[in-house]
Design a protein around this nucleic acid. Structure first.
Length: 297
DNA sequence: ATAGGGTTAG
C-alpha cells in the first residue's frame, strides 16, 4: 500500500519540479584505503586454539543443528558467547522451538551458560507465546546465581503483552522498582506503550506517554520510538489529525522524526484520501538527506 | 570473547 502511495507522490513531485540527479556525490571514491590493525586481530584469531564457527553459512535449521553438534564436541569448548551467538541466530530465524531444544541440550551437556543465554531462551519462550515457560527459566537465574537485568524483564513484559496479559505486565513493571530488581528504561516503557496500542487501548498508551513527558516513571523523556508507536496507532485507528497534531509537537520536544515516523504519517494520510498533505510531508522528508549531501560536497 | 530487549511497510 505504502509503495503505491510513495510512487504516486514521487510521480507528482517529479512532474512538478526539476531534480538533478547528476549532482549526487559518490563519497566512497574519495575514501582511500588505509592501513589498519584489523589484520593483526585476524592473525591472532587465526592462530588461536579456539576454532571459529561460520554462523554466516547457516541457511536452514539443520545447518544450525550441525554447527551445534560440532560445537559441543570441540575441545577446548567454545566460549559461552559462541553458544549465545548460535542461539541468537536460531531465534532470529524464528526457529523458537529448535532454539529452546538446543538450550535444553546445553543445560544437559553442561555447556557454558550465562545470563545472556537465559535471556535469549526466555525470548524464545515468549515468542512462542509461552511467557510462563519464560518465568520458569527466570528460576534458573537464581538457582545458578545469575542476576536478571532490565533486558530480561523487558523480554518477559513483552511476552506477557503479546498474549494479552496486560495487568500482569503492569504488575511486573511495578515489582521491578519495589523489589529493586532493576530500573525500567526506555525499552521497558516503549514495550508497554506498544502493548497497549496493539491491544487497542491507545488512550492509555497516550496517558503513559504524557506521564513520561512529565518526568514520572523515573525514566528519561520518551524517544522517537515511543512517539512512532503512538503516531502509527493513531493513524491506523483513523485518527490522522491527532497523529498530525502529535507529529507537529516533536520539534519542540527535541525529537527528530525518522523514516518510520514519516512512513506512518504518509500512509495514514493516503489511506484517508489526503494525498496533498502527504505530498507536503514527503517533500519535507526528502529535504533532510540533501543537507548531508551538500556537506559531503 | 561471534552474546540478549522497543517503531512502520514489504
Amino acid at each position: 500500500m505504502w509503495r503505491n502511495h510513495a510512487a504516486m507522490i514521487l510521480g507528482r513531485i517529479i512532474s512538478n519540479s526539476s531534480f538533478n540527479s547528476s549532482t549526487l556525490p559518490i563519497a566512497s571514491f574519495l575514501v582511500k584505503p588505509r592501513f589498519n590493525f584489523d589484520n593483526l586481530t585476524h592473525q591472532i584469531k587465526y592462530f588461536s586454539a579456539y576454532p571459529r564457527f561460520d554462523f554466516g553459512s547457516i541457511r536452514e535449521p539443520n545447518d544450525a543443528v550441525a554447527l551445534f553438534r560440532e560445537m559441543v564436541r570441540t575441545q577446548p569448548r567454545p566460549y559461552v558467547t559462541v553458544f549465545n551467538k548460535l542461539l541468537s541466530v536460531v531465534v532470529k530465524m524464528k526457529q523458537y522451538s529448535l532454539g529452546l531444544h538446543l538450550f535444553d541440550e546445553m543445560l544437559k551437556r553442561n555447556a557454558p551458560v550465562n545470563h545472556y543465554t537465559l535471556s535469549i531462551a526466555i525470548d524464545g519462550c515468549c515468542r512462542l507465546k509461552r511467557p510462563d515457560f519464560g518465568f520458569a527459566i527466570l528460576g534458573i537465574f537464581f538457582k545458578r546465581g545469575y542476576e536478571p537485568d532490565v533486558v530480561t524483564f523487558n523480554i518477559l513484559i513483552k511476552g506477557l503483552l503479546l498474549v494479552g496479559r496486560i495487568p500482569e505486565a503492569a504488575k511486573v513493571l511495578g515489582k521491578l522498582s519495589a523489589f529493586h530488581l532493576c530500573e525500567p528504561n526506555e525499552y521497558t516503557y516503549n514495550t508497554i506503550i506498544n502493548g497497549l496500542c496493539k491491544a487497542g487501548d491507545i488512550l492509555q498508551a497516550i496517558e503513559l506517554l504524557c506521564l513520561l513527558e512529565k518526568g514520572k516513571g523515573s525514566c528519561k523523556q520518551p524517544d522517537v520510538y515511543a512517539y512512532n508507536i503512538v503516531i502509527d496507532a493513531l493513524c491506523k485507528e483513523g485518527k490522522v489529525d491527532e497523529a498530525l497534531q502529535l507529529f507537529s509537537t516533536l520539534g519542540d520536544k527535541g525529537i527528530s522524526p525518522n523514516i518510520v515516523t514519516y512512513n506512518s504519517i504518509v500512509d495514514g494520510l493516503c489511506n484517508h484520501r489526503r494525498e496533498d498533505e502527504a505530498e507536503d510531508i514527503f517533500k519535507k522528508m526528502i529535504v533532510c538527506p540533501d543537507v548531508v549531501t551538500c556537506n559531503i560536497c
